[in-house]
Amino acid sequence: MTLTPPATAEAAAARVEPAAVDTIEGRSPWQLAFVRLRHDRVAVGSSAVICLIVLLAVLAPVVAHLLGHGPNQQFRTTGLSAEGIPVGPGSTFLFGTDDLGRDVLVRVLYGARISLLVGVVASGLAVVLGVIIGLAAGYFSGAVDTVLSRFMDVVLSLPYLIFAIALVSLLGPSLMVSVAVIAFFSWASVGRIVRGQVLSIKEKEFVEAARSVGAGHLRIMFVDILPNVLAPTIVYATMLIPLSIVFESTLSFLGIGVLPPTATWGNMLSESIAYYRVAWWFVAFPGLALLITTMAFNLLGDCVRDAFDPRGNRLFVAVED
């Protein structure tokens, strides 16, 4: 080390600080967030719960096979009391039976398949759509932004339940329609968040730097801006999954989602309403399943946010900056 600056760049390279040479491979913000998540007990707990639910959903047919109870199989004799009332939890029916003498446990597990499928697929669609439209709106200001933003405003201000009912009565209820309806009513909020983020990120000097080296619009949007809005988007997506699950349950509950006899938590809740005085298990287990699932996703969402942003405010860049 000398006090005079080295005359050549070689020497300059040689004086790179030894303190910094510990790890050559830098850890990405994603990796850092992941490491933080792994050290967060709530995150680990909620992920474990989610994994368990996924596992149970996947294994639903196995459980049904082991118990010898199909999801739509009606046990008129063993599953209903003499008065035709569902039987409570016991050794044959661990979670009791429903009004048609079907096994609530098996149906809850089969319901999880629908809920998770709809939750994940619909949120995924909403996120992809929202990110692309939000990115375009935020990046190209002016007419593009005006049109897209107004469109998002319109979608967000639609009374979604009424429109969902109307749409479903037009198209007829089905799983696909449920997914489409949920995605359609969810993407705009993602789009708005992304647009806001992009508006502030595109003012950063690194975007200008990219322009100054000759990068085109697409490259700037997807290489420079997108990675910076991904973190808040992922957080929002984690929060969107439980919303979609609840949305799907609502649709099913109202009879405009997935049709009976397919088991979904919404269907089961809807059917159980009339029996809640005599058969608490019929309401409680699907309700509990819904609650635990949404809780787990929401908690995980919180943790993901904290992991990306340990100090509490850098993830959502301040727009006034």
Partner: peptide, 8 residues
């Protein structure tokens, strides 16, 4: 050249 302090 300025007499800089090397390193950080």
């Amino acid at each position: 050249p300025l007499k800089s302090i090397p390193g950080m």
